[in-house]
Design a protein around this nucleic acid. Sequence first.
DNA 1: TCTTGATTTGACCATCTGGTCAAACTCACG
DNA 2: CGTGAGTTTGACCAGATGGTCAAATCAAGA
Lengths: 202, 202
Amino acid sequence: MPKDRAPTRIQKKNRAAIIEAALNVFSAHGFRGATVDQIAAEAGLSKPNLLYYFPSKEAIHTALLSGLLDVWLAPLHDLDETGDPLQEILSYVHRKLQMSRELPRESRLFANELVQGAPRIHQALSNDLRVLVDEKSEILTQWMDQGKIARLHPHHLIFSIWALTQHYADFDVQVRAILGDEDPFEGAEPFIDTLYRKLLTP
Amino acid sequence: MPKDRAPTRIQKKNRAAIIEAALNVFSAHGFRGATVDQIAAEAGLSKPNLLYYFPSKEAIHTALLSGLLDVWLAPLHDLDETGDPLQEILSYVHRKLQMSRELPRESRLFANELVQGAPRIHQALSNDLRVLVDEKSEILTQWMDQGKIARLHPHHLIFSIWALTQHYADFDVQVRAILGDEDPFEGAEPFIDTLYRKLLTP
DNA sequence: TCTTGATTTGACCATCTGGTCAAACTCACG
DNA sequence: CGTGAGTTTGACCAGATGGTCAAATCAAGA
């Protein structure tokens, strides 16, 4: 494996190519369904060469997930206590839907992991994620106390946003099978916007 | 393989045990992640014995999925044109949530398949499911035309019900990691009920 | 250019996995 | 009971898969 000095030009390029390839393969087939050969081929490397950069399949998966977790949680992280409640929430919803549209592989990567019991990221869920959600739920509760938005269970409000937005990335095949040629997000955007405006009006 | 006469007592028992075991294993690990040995062990059979009842892993999966599809779609199928619009929809939502609570393995089985592009049930999606959804969307549209419920994109309304209810089964680990000891459905039920009452009010 | 560390690879290995098969065993029924 | 169909299994196979290794090749600074 490469020494842990400053990464060389080649190391940067190949590590990036591997992570990109791994995202493709893991998101499409899940951890178990992905093969190292597949990832290597997609990254344009031989299998031993790939394993020169990452010690194992598991290590690639871990690196990929932990690298993405921040990106994935950024929109919720940005929910601003001092902003306008309805606008803040609608903006969060909007960003999440945008991510389903633009980063569907990332969404499916997490979906794959979660639906199988999250054996490799259970840690992060019970710690980082839980803390973040509790923190933001606190803000939501304050807004409700102040009568700025309707009173609802804050955790379930957040779950609903995840469910409604990620559905379009995770179950893309199903959505498209039903909508046919229609662009899913064309209709999803106003639908979800209306939903939260109605729901959150006190 | 057993002849296709009337199934014997033993055939009935073992086929049922295999399907039950397959549901456990496939829903927890996905098609690729499940092994025939695992299913056989769970069913209390040896691998060759299992393969005496089903010709292949694929065949078990297919039998399982097609056997469940009807159960899975029954609630939507039962949406009744002649009933009270709001009550009909709320009742559908309620049944779907109930299914997430009582049949989480079934939900995850489909989720696993869908999130990986539904390679084995694409057929059913584009045919049966699409027809059913189009048919029920027609009813929803009529209700909207009659001013009985708010005007919304009917397909996305249905998607939202799937997303909100199945989320609790499919991403159970995540939900529980955040809620801690709290029963997810305790809070989900009133939340989702409120959501659809507000959303559907014209 | 030369040297040294970084990079790449062909060959290989152990294990897992889906599936086969012939032989053995069990059961229901005449 | 005896017998033939139904059921079960140990042994086995071929291919896939994660991972290793020594040898070969390459790249960049002295």
